[in-house]
Amino acid sequence: MKKMAIIATKGTLDMAYPPFILASTAAALGYEVQVFFTFYGLQLLRKDLSSVMISPLANPAMPMPVPMPVMVQMLPGMESMATMMMKQKLKKHGVASLQELRDLCLEAEVKFVACQMTVDLFEFDKSEFIDNIEYGGAATFLGFAGDTDICLFV
């Protein structure tokens, strides 16, 4: 059986997609998949994913309906607005929600490992994270990653 390992380090809406898409698809193709969530990636393991947002600020590649100066992008509420618009866009184009993709990963037995050090560092409460995940460190990840066909850092 082929194996794939992914390190997910980002906790924004846009950067949450690649790990979940690749993990779910690889599982559908018969891969054994493990995703290691570290630093901001931990946000993707929260029961409630509504705090996962996208910001147009410092994100010049993000297509905007109208050109928007940085001074405007930093106004209060812009992040929520951009997130809402992005979610509408995703829905309109038939792209699955993060929740749906994450559920599909779990259903396909993708293994999620949360970085224990990050949990300690940010003093996260484990009860805020979904069940059925493991907690481990770099050595845990490398134990699996060392024997994979594909290993990605996102």
Partner: peptide, 13 residues
Amino acid sequence: RGMNCPLPILKTK
């Protein structure tokens, strides 16, 4: 119909 990558593959599987 209406689904985008990777949903058609996941649903097929």
